[in-house]
């Protein structure tokens, strides 16, 4: 019985691993294309690609980092903040993501600075 359970578990894991790898591979293609179009200034297309990448693989921090940058460029600071938070949550030690987020916060702080009436 135990052996059978072990075999079933291993079979399930073996089936799931390529699926996860496929998801990352598909997401990576979207990320790569997004980078290409962003470099040509086509930010809306880049947003679409990186949103797709984040949908395909929600654990892909690079996709969320890039998406945050694109939202920043489009002026959607709230969406950028959420994407940066997800990216830093997934990879808290990634220095590039941290640096991007710090630079974003400097700008975001300016716009949310409380006023006096």
């Amino acid at each position: 019985m135990r052996i059978r359970t072990l075999i079933v578990t291993l079979s399930l894991l073996a089936a799931a691993a390529p699926a996860a790898a496929d998801a990352r591979s598909d997401a990576k293609k979207q990320v790569e294309f997004g980078i290409e179009v962003a470099q040509r200034g086509l930010w809306r297309e880049a947003v679409y690609r990186w949103e797709r990448a984040a949908q395909i693989d929600p654990t892909y921090a690079a996709a969320l980092n890039n998406l945050a940058i694109a939202y920043e460029h489009e002026g959607d600071l709230e969406k950028a903040r959420i994407a940066y938070e997800k990216a830093t949550g997934l990879e808290p030690n990634n220095a590039s993501i941290k640096q991007n987020y710090e630079l974003f916060k400097e700008i975001n702080d300016r716009t949310t600075r409380p006023a006096t009436q």
Binding site: Q39, E72, E74, S96, I107, T111
Partner: peptide, 15 residues
Amino acid sequence: SSYYEIPIETPIRPK
């Protein structure tokens, strides 16, 4: 890891 530095312009809406 692969990285690409990219210039951006963040539009800030008036307060």
